[in-house]
Write a protein that binds this DNA or RNA. Sequence first.
RNA 1: GUGGGUGUAGCUCAGUUGGUUAGAGCACCAGAUUGUGGCUCUGGGGGCCGGGGGUUCAAAUCCCCUCACUCACCCCA
Length: 415
Amino acid sequence: MYQIPRGTRDFLPEQAERFRRLEEIAVALACQYGYGELRTPIFEHSELFARSVGESTDIVEKEMYTFQDRGERSLTLRPEGTAGVVRAFVENKLYGGSLPAKYYYFGPMFRYEKPQAGRYRQLWQFGVELFGSEAPRADVEVIALGWQYFQELGVKANLVINSIGCRQCRGEYKKALVAYLTGRNICELCSNRLERNPLRVLDCKEESCQKELEEAPRISQYLCPQCQEHFQKVKAGLSDISIPFTQDERLVRGLDYYNRTTFEYKTNELGSQDALGGGGRYDDLVELVGGPAVPAVGLALGIDRTELMDPPALKKAPGRRGVWLVTMEPVSDQAIALVHPLRQQGVHLGYDLAGRSFKAQFKQADRNNCRWTLIIGPDDLAQGQAVLRDMDTGEQRQLALESLVEMVSNLEGVK
RNA sequence: GUGGGUGUAGCUCAGUUGGUUAGAGCACCAGAUUGUGGCUCUGGGGGCCGGGGGUUCAAAUCCCCUCACUCACCCCA
């Protein structure tokens, strides 16, 4: 027997519908905020991700699905959405149009990781990217959009924000941090990080490392005046629109392209998979990918994890809907032909395909949660009538066959 | 990638110190009711006991390998 590849999943109808609604709500929200959809391929040249996400990140070092095609190009299934959108932004010279330019995407991403609940090798993200504004209120808008998504769904998320400075002041800070940590009691992993990506020592969970970090220099002390002002305005902007947040100086995101604002939406209900979404500003990325210097800010939300939170907004109203035909040989085909036009009227119509007993057909009607059954057996047909039964109340009445389609398609709860 | 836990019917799970045809509840199908769902009762179909190998007269049970899920680490969505 074949098994689904590790870390991937099938979405059976009920769950697929939940996912579809999560997408619809996200798309409606993005439209409301003035974002247009930008669809990019599911794979890109490997180099794009290596350059933009960062050579020394976990994603690039060990999580990419990379393959060679028949033309011996190295391609990679996208591990995140921003790189492709930035590539498209540059390649299509979208920076030449009016700015800011705002795009959203929704789709699967791929990361080769050891799976766990809430951590998959094929995962879905919804994201937005805002190009061409350096203004703190652009950061605030993006953060607010994500916040509103969780609010609309009724999902409890905690917003955590930080500023990791710009190229200049982060450089200063890195130097200071390395100088401070060198020779101190930190774990082996962090010793390696110290050389390649020192900021990541900050969110190490190793007790010894955290202890050493207590007295370590803080990024806030190193932010240049411009970065400081930017961060203050972001925080003020969030407060102005009543979005609560906490500041965490150890929030360092695992992608290299971020600068200044970084943020995450966290939960404490999913074990160690606590990030529902996150994002930040990436003012240098467009240039890095070959475009002009265009500042940008964006976010990505994890749809799989959001669904795991069992959003109250996805609860279905339980009411019955639609019509079930109950009939019997030798007139079944005639009965079906009589009611089929209901489908063209948009009525939810079902009937037995297996030649089951009368009783069994009512059972199916019940199980399919139908509001009405329409009974058309040999006797009814002979009298030119059908029997309509209300499955909620059990009441029945007769209908003339000539007016059946019109009568039934105007009933309550059939569409 | 490292370490732990768990895999028995569609689902949730029993299964004794290894012992003969592997069970229950729910779900499914049928009958009780030859034109009426939900409730009840009766019956029925369904299992390479995750897969492979080994020990043994005998393995769901013990051992090894492997696959999957899961928890923690790691990382993030």
